[in-house]
Amino acid sequence: MAILPIRIMGDPVLHSPAAVVDEITDEVRTLVADMFETMDAAPGVGLAAPQVGVPLRIYVYTYQDDDGAPWRGVVINPVLWMTPPAPGSPDPDEESEGCLSFPGERFPLRRSDEVLVTGIDLDGAPVRIEVDGWRARIMQHEFDHLDGILYIDRLDDADWKTTQKIARKRGWGRPGQSWTPGVDDIDA
């Protein structure tokens, strides 16, 4: 297993739809193992294959509730259904999220509170995930990556402008920018 460099906003792989996985090969299994290791090292609660430069419809996730119960897995070729988000402005304390591809920042974003995700796992077995709350947010965030959407693309105008200023200041927003957990000094 290896910790992979995480692409930063502006890299073309992050802004293009990812391809369907046609076959689960040893290369796909290795990629998923590396994605788990990278996500854990970052640390993050999710990581999509495009974030590590691979334009495939795969993401991994992990989350631990207050009761300590772990929730961890991989979804290949996911399909997402969700209830419409509640109207109104997001609560900055309860609805802020960050992204390993825009490291070190968090912004409020309204998401659906309930989702259903289907797909397959590394054995080709069907996956069905019905979740709400923070877990639903993770599923939506990672699914967006597979469609070439970063969460900052969904922010209101004022926050989006702030992200663009941050990106210019840090030299982001162009191809080839990445950081490696445990190597680069970025507070994700």
Rank of each mutant, 00 (worst) to 15 (best):
I3Y: 10
I3R: 05
R7Q: 15
I8F: 11
I8H: 07
D11W: 13
L14H: 07
H15R: 13
P17A: 03
A18C: 00
A18H: 00
D22V: 08
D22H: 12
D22A: 13
D22C: 03
I24F: 00
V28R: 06
V28I: 15
T30E: 15
T30S: 12
V32Y: 03
V32G: 00
V32N: 02
D34V: 01
M35R: 03
F36G: 07
E37S: 11
E37W: 09
T38I: 09
M39T: 05
D40F: 08
D40Y: 14
P43W: 06
Q51A: 14
V52H: 11
P55N: 15
P55K: 12
Y61W: 09
Y61M: 04
Q64H: 02
Q64P: 00
D67V: 01
P70M: 01
W71Q: 01
W71I: 00
G73M: 04
V75T: 14
I76G: 06
P78Y: 12
V79S: 15
L80Q: 08
W81K: 14
M82Q: 13
M82P: 01
P85D: 07
G88V: 06
D91C: 10
P92G: 09
P92E: 05
D93T: 10
E95Y: 01
E95F: 08
S96A: 15
S101L: 14
P103I: 02
R106E: 08
P108Q: 05
R110D: 10
R111C: 01
S112M: 05
S112W: 10
V115P: 11
G119M: 13
D123V: 00
G124Y: 04
P126K: 04
R128C: 10
R128V: 14
I129M: 07
E130C: 11
E130K: 14
V131N: 03
V131G: 05
V131W: 02
G133L: 10
W134V: 05
W134S: 00
A136F: 04
E142T: 03
F143Y: 15
G148C: 09
Y151I: 05
I152Y: 04
I152H: 02
A158W: 02
A158F: 05
K161Y: 02
T162F: 02
Q164D: 00
K165I: 03
G171T: 00
W172K: 12
W172I: 01
G173E: 06
R174W: 03
R174M: 08
P175G: 13
S178I: 07
T180R: 13
V183T: 08
D185Y: 03
D185I: 08
D187C: 05
